[in-house]
Design a protein around this nucleic acid. Structure first.
Length: 890
RNA sequence: GGGCGCAUAGCUCAGUUGGCUAGAGCACCAGCUCGACAAGCUGGGGGUCGAAGGUUCGAGUCCUUCUGCGCCCA
């Protein structure tokens, strides 16, 4: 074994071993309970980023832990076809290579190009999850455009259709002029931009020379104005309500209406109403029955409705409109302002609200059971605060615009006859066949596709075979654990819950809910606390980190850095922590495997020595603690507990204590057996966190262990506490021993005495209750502190010329005297005692202050007061002791 | 505009229900080439817990306000 752990030489081999074992495909063993996780399908165009790496790690920890805990565990991987993103990538590529647009190629040819691209590049991100160690059932890898998914999507659509929940409507949608599609509210970002606020003057009809002044940041939209609104209680405009204005440039009459949504303070207090191009105006227009004028084409140029401005791109039109108004002398004040502009998530172009025909799903009836699921505890979020976010969205849910003007996706399963009467069908309808209702020939299918989320909301069901009642669906639905990012709580999590309740309607109540725990993981930020993003270029590539530090180090570090979904700042060097720990484990294992030789079977009844009983007692409580943390998804706590146990207990003390028992005259057969047992349990407990190194060490452990160990650690049972002692006395003894050993080491350094030189030590036991514990630890102390003489007692004879240290602070449990026959470094001794004195005095004054407070003594619980009194006495004694020692130094 | 999160050692973070001495890793200082590990070992120094009020015998922890940073939603 190399003295350094080399992940590069191990990871591929371990992955191959897991693949060959078939362990990640659940057995279907009906005697076992099931445990199911669905991966949040990353975009098929995606590459692994830190968020994926963290989320993949967390899911893998759960999957591996549950698998080892006896669950028939299924973790389904897959990817999302990601309509807009994927189409854009391929469109761009084709244009760059061949100067062809999708219209040039035609629908069929273009889609076939995307499929080709998907076949070639679509597995990238899943391969990256494999490198991370994800124990998914790769044989069940799913894709949201798979044939069975398409079938599921159509069945779901038609069901909603039949329930009257799908409707087509002329609605104001968020239009992306670059991608030429409607995008949902959830696909919009708001950015603050510099802009201008223009005042425009509209002449009042019938009152020559009188104008109503409106303010706008988008002057070109005036071409679509169909009214002006003022506040009903605004005295400035009271007499104008009901009158009409002459809309300049368009030369049409528009009414002045009173609407209490108008903010009297903003601008002039009069707002132009453009129902075709502003959401608030759309509402106002509807209230006052104002017509809708659509002045924009889908490509962002102005339409015929814009009169002489028709055909201009929107930016150009803005300038032209302002110029034309200026020429008429109808522009008032112009101010530079900062305002929020909506921008498309995908193309980053400014969103233009415009009226268009789209398909919508009524959400309210679907939201109800999803709200109830959280309220009645069927579904819990972790951390719990995200429940509020989920509920707020669902309680104010808006209808879902599900049509997208794209080609890549599930085509909307709606066909029209020659009159445009729609018909929804789960199977293809032949052009020319008769419409089932009207009998007229079907002439075309709806050209649009469904929003990507309209397939991924079926993910937990459809990947298991829904709408067919498959064995998988029966056995593995509902799932237990969904881990995802906070930003898709609405987009995805809430919709999956709605779909579960809407479509798994042959199940009862909570059995419909697609998962019982929704874990929202931390957001990984850069070292400055900014979100990592491709565009900011501040991302840390997980694959680089895996390359540099190893997959286990990346996993372990991420878990150590992220407590319970609390966002974390990350820098590359943070992975050193994980790497160092993995290396420490590797070397401790190396010690056991190389030094101990054959490892006899562990026999609890043969264990007698202090250190053996102690480490087994600690092992016992560590197993309990860690198992509980994994169970409750407290990953960071599990990692911390293991870190401490492995490094601070096992390596620092147990291995050191064992050394003389492995070779030469002190050799016994119990120590190797205990080492073997503890190491095996450490590997198994750590396996969910660091699967590669533990699997690699396991292989070597099996080779030298006389205990029958399962061939593959990933399939081994999680450790139990069976046969392990709970020994509080042993733990107390070891703690006492540790204190004294550390004290001796400190005195050696202070007085420049080499560790290798046997020393004489006398311990004055100050805390009588700890005397027996120290007595029990004597052999251990002699060995680890390298002592040739050791005396301990309540009042032993003190050697003259000894260096002294108080072990266990405030109050000290032991006074440790290192016999130096007068060669004490008095200055160092003095400085050390002074420091100790300072501390004690500070604490003593604190305690005395408390006890001097009459209300504390009379009102605090008796036991607390008694404790403080005892502490005061102890501290006073300690103070006196230190002063005595200082006086003796002169 | 609404909501949420964070502020504790130089840095990154823990700190359960208020109660003995506020912890860890990194960094820092000093000493260790003793056969698992220098990605290590041993010892050490370092914090009036963002600010101001309040509740309480007692506040890092509970309440209010404020400041700074970040995120989500409109």
């Amino acid at each position: 074994m190399a003295s350094r752990y080399e992940p590069g030489t191990v990871e591929d081999a371990m992955r191959a071993r897991w693949d060959a074992s078939g362990l990640f495909t659940p057995s279907g063993d009906g005697s076992k309970p099931t445990y199911t996780i669905m991966i949040p399908p990353p975009n098929v165009t995606g590459v692994l980023h830190m968020g994926h790496a963290l989320n993949g790690t967390l899911q893998d920890i759960v999957a591996r832990h549950r698998r080892m805990s006896g669950f028939d565990t299924l973790w389904v991987p897959g990817t999302d076809h990601a309509g807009i993103a994927t189409q854009a990538v391929v469109e761009k590529k084709i244009y760059a290579e061949r100067k062809l647009t999708r219209e040039d190629m035609g629908r069929e040819a273009f889609l076939s190009e995307i499929w080709d691209w998907k076949e070639e590049h679509g597995n990238t991100i899943l391969d990256q999850f494999k490198r991370l160690g994800a124990s998914c059932d790769w044989s069940r890898t799913a894709f949201t455009l798979d044939p069975n998914m398409s079938h599921a999507v159509r069945v779901a659509f038609v069901r909603l259709w039949e329930q009257g929940l799908v409707y087509r409507g002329a609605r104001l949608v968020n239009w992306d002029c670059v991608l030429q599609t409607a995008v949902s509210d959830d696909e919009i970002e708001y950015v603050t931009k510099a802009g201008r606020l223009w005042e425009l003057k509209y002449p009042v009809e019938g009152e020559d020379g009188r104008f109503l002044v409106v303010a706008t940041t988008r002057p070109e939209t005036m071409l679509g104005d169909t009214g002006v609104a003022v506040h009903p209680e605004d005295p400035r405009y009271a007499d104008l309500v009901g009158k009409t204005l002459r809309l300049p440039l368009m030369d049409r009459s528009i009414p002045v209406v009173a609407d209490d949504t108008v903010d009297r303070e903003y601008g002039t207090g009069a707002v132009k109403v453009t129902p075709g191009h502003d959401p608030a105006d759309y509402e106002r227009g509807a209230r006052h029955k104002l017509p809708i004028v659509n002045i924009l084409e889908k490509d962002g140029t102005l339409s015929e409705e814009a009169g002489r401005f028709a055909g201009m791109p929107r930016e150009e039109a803005r300038k032209a409109v302002v110029k034309a108004m200026e020429e008429l002398g109808l522009v008032g004040e112009v101010k530079d302002i900062e305002h929020n502009v909506s921008v498309s998530d995908r193309s980053k172009s400014v969103i233009e609200p415009l009226v268009s025909e789209q398909w919508f799903v009524k959400m309210e009836p679907l939201a109800k059971p999803a709200i109830a699921a959280v309220k009645d505890g069927t579904l819990t979020f972790k951390p719990k605060r995200w429940e509020r976010v989920y509920l707020d969205w669902l309680e104010n849910v808006r209808d879902w615009c599900i049509s997208r003007q794209l080609w890549w996706g599930h085509r909307i399963p709606v066909w029209y006859d020659e009159d445009g009467t729609p018909h929804a069908s789960t199977t293809d309808v032949e052009i020319g066949s008769a419409h089932p209702k009207t009998g007229k020939p079907i002439v075309r299918q709806d050209p649009d596709v469904l929003d990507t989320w309209a397939s991924s909301w079926l993910w937990p069901m459809a990947t298991l075979g829904w709408p067919d009642d498959t064995a998988d669906l029966q056995r593995y639905y509902p799932t237990q654990f969904l881990s995802t990012a906070s930003e898709i709580i609405y987009l995805w999590v809430a919709r999956m819950v709605m779909a579960g309740y809407a479509f798994m309607d042959d199940r009862e109540g909570g059995e419909r809910c697609p998962f019982s725990t929704c874990y929202i993981h931390a957001t990984v930020l850069d070292a400055q606390g900014r979100r990592m993003s491709k565009s900011a270029g501040n991302g840390i590539d997980p694959l680089d980190m895996i390359q540099q530090y190893g997959a286990d180090a990346v996993r372990f570090s991420l878990v150590m850095l992220t407590k319970e979904g609390q966002d974390t700042k990350l820098a590359p060097e943070k992975f050193e922590m994980g790497r160092n720990f993995v290396n420490k484990l590797w070397n401790a294992s190396r010690f056991v495997l190389v030094k101990a030789g054959r490892l006899p079977a562990f026999d609890a009844s043969a264990v007698e020595t202090l250190e053996d009983r102690w480490i087994l007692s600690r092992l016992r409580s560590t197993i309990e603690t860690v198992d509980g943390h994994y169970e409750r998804y407290e990953f960071n706590d599990a990692a911390n507990a293991l870190y401490r146990f492995v490094w601070n207990d096992f390596c620092d003390w147990y291995v050191e204590a064992c050394k003389p028992r492995l070779e030469g005259e002190g050799a016994d057969s119990v120590a190797p057996a205990v080492l073997g047992r503890v190491l095996a349990d450490i590997l198994a407990m750590l396996h969910p966190l660091t699967p590669f190194v533990t699997e690699a060490v396991w292989e070597r452990l099996r080779a030298v262990s006389e205990t029958a160990l399962p061939e593959v650690l990933a399939g081994a049972p999680f450790p139990t506490t069976d046969g392990l002692p709970h020994d509080a006395d042993a733990e107390a003894a070891l703690d006492a021993g540790r204190l004294v050993v550390s004290s001796v080491r400190k005195l050696r350094q202070q007085n420049d005495v080499a560790e290798s030189k046997p020393a004489k030590v006398t311990v004055v036991v100050l805390d009588g209750s700890r005397g027996p514990a120290l007595a029990r630890a004597e052999a251990l102390v002699r060995r680890l502190a390298n002592l040739e003489a050791f005396t301990a007692g309540a009042d032993p004879s003190r050697p003259a010329g000894a260096a002294v240290d108080l072990a266990g602070e405030s109050p000290a449990a032991f006074e440790v005297l290192l016999d130096l026959e007068g060669l004490v470094d008095k200055e160092a001794q003095k400085a050390d005692l002074q420091r100790a004195l300072g501390k004690v005095e500070k604490q003593l004054s604190g305690v005395e202050g408390k006890l001097g407070n009459e209300s504390f003594v009379s009102r605090a619980p008796e036991d607390i007061v008694a404790r403080e009194r005892a502490r005061r006495d102890e501290l006073a004694a300690e103070k006196e002791r230190i002063e005595g020692l200082l006086a003796a130094l002169g």
